[in-house]
Nucleic acid binder design. Structure first.
Length: 1034
RNA sequence: GGGUGAUUAGCUCAGUUGGUAGAGCGCUUCCUUUACACGGAAGAUGUCGGGAGUUCGAGCCUCUCAUCACCCA
């Protein structure tokens, strides 16, 4: 049966994958012949995700490692799975609901909405798992995990799993150890999704903004001498002021100011430190007065040097406010609109004033409840409020004014053709001081809206307590990060780690297993002071609560979640509302008893909290599962952009829970870019879809391209031309088999390596030994590009270019023994190509493997070779074949350069051929004559005039072409060679003549230089002689 | 502003203890020679970003300047 002309990837790949999967080829432990495990955890893609080039790249790396180890007989597991991806999935489902005219999330309610999410997941989730099969990924699909498996809301149709148990167990354990706490902190709030997000999910983008300058009048009309000096201390401005000038890019937050801060060394403001000034906005009757304080934060050289402090809406201000005990007034609701709840502004302002005057005690909860937004701004969007605030302040005359630069200038003249006589008489002399400037603004990476720093109650992991072991694991080398630069970045981040905010105001996710109830004070229930109960189930929680409230009170579980929905204002208000809404008492409650109402926190955990448990949560933990033998795993392969998001968190969580690092090696790679090095984006239209590449060139070509660009730490630029090139490589391999087919070489299967007698066969067997060592060394060092390059060079450059060509005379010849040996060697070598290439190009290699009559195992399970170069290389055969190749190369090159017709057979002459050269010729003259198109060889004492000269080690060859060649051209050719040689000779002689080199360089380097010099000098002599001969003619 | 990395052939990139530069693609010329035109043969192209230093010797080590990229503020 003749082979097809090329490999039909589109037809073969699905068929081969199906065969592997049916055979259970990728199941955990498949093909294991030893006890050592090798485990890679797939970074779980979002359940909403699709395969992109980044996945294609890192899947290739993981699959190469996994297939390699599996063939070596390790007990292998590549663990797949999906991440529930809180925000992304919730968003996707909400969009879906909108598109299909279904009720909105809020209309459905939590339970119904979660049903919809699960429905969505069942119908559309996880398409990426099908796409990954097209890449040839050898994951154990039967073990595919999901970070929400086993959740209370999961329908029975879902694949069973217990990831949820792991998440809750870890939370409770960490909570009980004091590693998790709840607190009111400034967090990044996404007003679109109405949830806190991590600072890593915030993109800071430079945008055009404005800096407004306003006057904050001093209380009671006080004045002071304001003096400005230049660098030399000369007074440049001296005036009496009754205000302090403040610069801000966010005027709407002035309403929440708690103080004005200046630097303690700032002489300009020294006279007024400790005094009060007025926030120049809001009803005139209730203007708030705030203190002028000192703090290290203000930069004396920036703006006016005075900073307004709004602790609840700015991260820097928050720190200042904490240091100075300044109240932090929360101005906005969850949508980023100005608050509309709470008491009338006049009442709130009065309380705030009492606080500022030091007449009123305050605590966090009380401040949080206060709404400092005057009635006229309440309910406005934050950006609308900004406009109104600016307009109102300016109208009242509290904007800092500067001379109008347009006054005295003229209107542009292009429009009306008038020249120079069009003064702007309509311009005011002074205008408000507003600087247009670039400001860094935070945006949600998913919502793309401006993130608002918000003071809210959130759950935190006290990372400071668990970061130590994660740092030590890398510092002590138990976990290695590749490339090494990643380690520095890792240290830097972990050493400056912030508390990790793990609560999200979403519904899709692991609901936090904490219930709030009133505390008992003075024998009564106090709903103002919360008591927390944390346990993995409601039943356990009830036990905890009962124990706390007994014997005086009984316990009832309420639905805090519903309260939250009913409140449009701050969620804190809702939380403190427990007990107020006591209507939620269940039907079974007994009359006459007093119940403590407890309610579960409605928030869910950050998705990264659950994916932090991926290295063991996927293996059945906390159950005593057999799969736990794969923990700790071996290698983590992921993009360096999620070093913090995920890698660091897995490290911390594994150390905290399991007391071990989750893997010994972290392989980080860069973002995959387009061929020009630009990020791919839909808007730019430069997105390359890996599936398109597979359709066009086959998965193997894409994979080879990925392997080849996987230089450690390298920039990843994917190029279609390159992928095409590797498709061609696959075809080359295919044709090597059709070569064997053509020569009707038997292929019974699993050929053994023959004890070769033919030099040719000895040589290629040795080359195979070398490449096996190179490939393994490269794989062990995670230098996948080196492995790919070595295999490419071997398969194409050695096997196809030379070995197959050399074998032709034998295969066509009459020496049956030599032919039989060569048949077997050829089959063996080609088999080795398949085995060694299989981790990179699994499909085409498996297809070719299956062409053999019978096989002990499929290629995916073939035994990875262990032979070494020292075992297989025959030094004499090596030297001889390289000499033959050299001679052929040189003859071909000389012929081409002097324009000998490609088809013409020419006679060859030789002088001074030594014994080794003679025997190399004798052994291989058939090959040489065939490939270099040589008619005959004659020994001569002197070359005739007009002869192309080919210097070789052990003899000088020549092609007598007196009448055919252009003498001048041949001289030019030789002289050019001489020039190159001259450079080398100069370097070598220079070094060897330098006594310091001989004295200080290592012996072998000196010896090598000497040997090299001898060779070159010999060559030089031959060339000189040749040139001289030619010049005689000329 | 801080950190990390980069700058090597026309393009995209390798270059592992410092020993004198490579690959793929592209380009030029020739070749339908029975495995392969997704092929074969031959060929051209580099003051390794600039400068200084250490060394017998620097693409590689040190310093400095320039440009760029990414991450964090």
């Amino acid at each position: 049966m003749a082979m097809e002309k090329t490999f039909n990837a589109a037809e073969a790949e699905p068929r081969i994958y199906e065969m592997w999967e049916q055979a259970g080829a990728f199941k955990a432990g498949a093909n294991a012949t030893r006890d050592e495990t090798f485990c890679i955890m797939l970074p779980p893609p979002n359940v909403t995700g699709h395969l992109h080039v980044g996945h294609a790249f890192n899947h290739t790396i993981m699959d190469m490692l996994t297939r390699w180890k599996r063939m070596q007989g390790y007990d292998t597991l590549w663990q797949p799975g999906l991440d529930h991806a809180g925000i992304a999935t919730q968003l996707m489902v909400e969009k879906d609901l909108a598109e299909t005219q279904q009720p909105k999330r809020t209309e459905l309610g939590r339970e119904k909405f979660l049903e919809k999410v699960w429905e969505w997941k069942a119908a559309k989730g996880g398409t990426i798992e099908q796409q990954a099969r097209r890449l040839g990924d050898s994951m154990d699909w039967s073990r595919s995990a999901f970070t929400m498996s086993g959740a209370e809301s999961a329908p029975t149709t879902e694949k069973p799993g217990n990831f949820h148990d792991a998440v809750l167990k870890v939370f409770v354990e960490m909570y009980n150890k004091g590693l998790i706490y709840r607190g009111k902190r400034l967090v990044n709030w996404d007003p679109h999704f109405e949830t806190a997000i991590s600072d890593l999910e915030v993109e800071n983008i430079e945008v055009d903004g404005h800096m407004w300058h306003f006057k904050y009048p001093l209380a009671g009309g006080e004045t002071y001498e304001y003096v400005e000096k230049d660098e030399d201390g000369n007074v440049t401005l001296r005036e009496t002021r009754d205000y302090i000038s403040i610069a801000t890019t966010r005027p709407e937050t002035m309403l929440g100011d708690g103080a004005v801060a200046v630097h303690k060394d700032d002489e300009r403001y020294a006279p007024i430190v400790g005094k009060l000034c007025e926030i120049p906005v809001g009803p005139k009757e209730q203007r708030r007065l705030i203190p002028i304080i000192t703090d290290p934060y203000p930069d004396m050289n920036f703006g006016s040097g005075a900073v307004k402090i709004t602790g609840a809406h700015d991260f820097n201000d928050y720190e200042v406010a904490k240091r100075g005990g300044i109240p932090m007034y929360n101005l906005m609701d969850t949508k980023g609109a100005m608050r509309a709840d709470g008491k009338p502004y006049a009442e709130e302002a009065a309380i705030a004033q009492a606080i500022a005057n030091g007449e009123q005690e305050f605590d966090e909860a009380m401040i949080a409840a206060m709404n400092m937004v005057p009635e006229e701004y309440r309910g406005l969007d934050r950006f609308e409020a900004r406009k109104r605030v600016v307009a109102d302040i300016t109208a009242e005359g509290n904007a800092v004014m500067v001379p109008n630069p347009l006054v005295g200038s003229t209107h542009p003249t292009e429009d009306d053709g008038r020249v120079g006589d069009n003064p702007r008489e309509d311009e005011p002399a002074m205008i408000p001081f507003v600087e247009a400037k670039k400001i860094m603004q935070p945006f949600g990476d998913r919502s793309k809206v401006v993130i608002e720093p918000m003071l809210t109650d959130q759950w935190f992991v006290d990372t400071a307590q668990i970061v130590g072991p994660a740092l030590d694991a890398v510092k002590e080398g138990r976990t290695k990060i590749m490339p090494e630069s990643g380690e520095k970045v890792y240290y830097h981040w972990l050493e400056n780690i912030e508390p990790w905010c793990i609560s999200r105001q979403l519904w899709w996710g692991h609901q936090i297993p904490v219930w709030f109830g009133p505390s008992i004070s003075n024998g009564d229930l106090d709903y103002q002071s919360q008591k927390q109960f944390c346990a993995t189930t409601e039943a356990e929680t009830l036990e905890l609560a009962k124990a706390y409230y007994a014997p005086d009170f009984d316990v009832e579980v309420s639905e805090l979640g519903e309260f939250i929905q009913l409140q449009s204002g701050q969620r804190e208000v809702a939380v403190t509302g427990i007990g107020v809404h006591s209507t939620a008492l269940g039907e079974n409650s007994e009359a006459g008893k007093t119940y403590a109402l407890i309610a579960r926190d409605p928030d869910v955990l950050d998705t990264w909290f659950s994916s932090g448990l991926w290295p063991f949560g996927t293996l059945g933990w906390p159950a005593d599962d057999e799969a736990m033998k794969y923990f700790p795993g071996d290698v983590l392969v992921t993009g360096q952009d999620i070093l913090f998001f995920w890698v660091a968190r897995m490290m911390m969580m594994s150390e905290a829970i399991m007391g071990q690092e989750p893997f010994h090696t972290v392989y980080l790679h860069q973002l995959v870019r387009d061929a020009k090095g630009e990020k791919m984006s839909k808007t730019k239209g430069n997105v390359i879809d890996p599936l398109d590449m597979i359709d066009a060139y086959g998965a193997d070509a894409l994979r080879f391209s990925n392997a080849q660009m996987a230089a450690l730490g390298g920039v990843l630029k994917i190029s279609e031309d390159r992928i095409k090139g590797y498709r061609n490589f696959g075809t080359k391999l295919w044709n090597a088999f059709s070569f064997a087919d053509h020569y009707q070489i038997a292929y019974p299967g699993d050929p053994a390596r023959p004890a070769a007698t033919q030099t040719l066969n000895k040589w290629i067997i040795g080359e195979t030994g070398k490449v096996r060592e190179t490939v393994d060394a490269a794989m062990e060092a995670y230098r996948f590009n080196d492995a790919a390059d070595a295999l490419y060079a071997f398969t194409w450059g050695k096997v196809c270019d030379w070995y197959l060509e050399f074998s032709k005379p034998i295969l066509q010849g009459d020496d049956a023994a030599a032919k039989a040996e060569t048949d077997q060697t050829l089959r063996w070598v080609l088999d080795q190509c398949l085995i060694l290439l299989h981790p990179i190009m699994p499909f085409i290699t498996e297809e070719l493997w299956q062409q053999a009559g019978s096989r002990a195992k499929m290629l995916a399970h073939a035994d990875w070779p262990t032979y070494t170069a020292s075992e297989l290389v025959d030094a004499d055969a090596d030297r001889e074949m390289n000499w033959v190749i050299d001679l052929i190369d040189n003859v071909r090159s000389a012929r081409a350069q002097v324009h000998v017709p490609a088809g013409a057979k020419v006679p060859l002459l030789v002088t001074g051929l030594d014994a080794k050269g003679q025997s190399a010729w004798d052994n291989n003259h058939v090959l040489i004559q065939r490939l270099a198109r040589i008619e005959s060889l004659s020994h001569v004492d002197d070359f005739p005039k007009g002869c192309v000269t080919i210097p070789m080690d052990g003899g000088t060859f020549g092609i007598p072409l007196a009448d055919l060649i252009d003498v001048g051209e041949e001289i030019a050719r030789l002289e050019k060679t001489m020039q190159k040689l001259g450079k080398e000779l100069g370097g070598l002689r220079g070094r060897l003549n330098n006594p310091k080199f001989v004295a200080s360089a290592p012996d072998e380097v000196v010896a090598e230089a000497k040997a090299n010099l001898a060779l070159r000098e010999n060559e030089e002599a031959q060339l000189k002689a040749a040139i001289a001969r030619l010049q005689e003619i000329g």
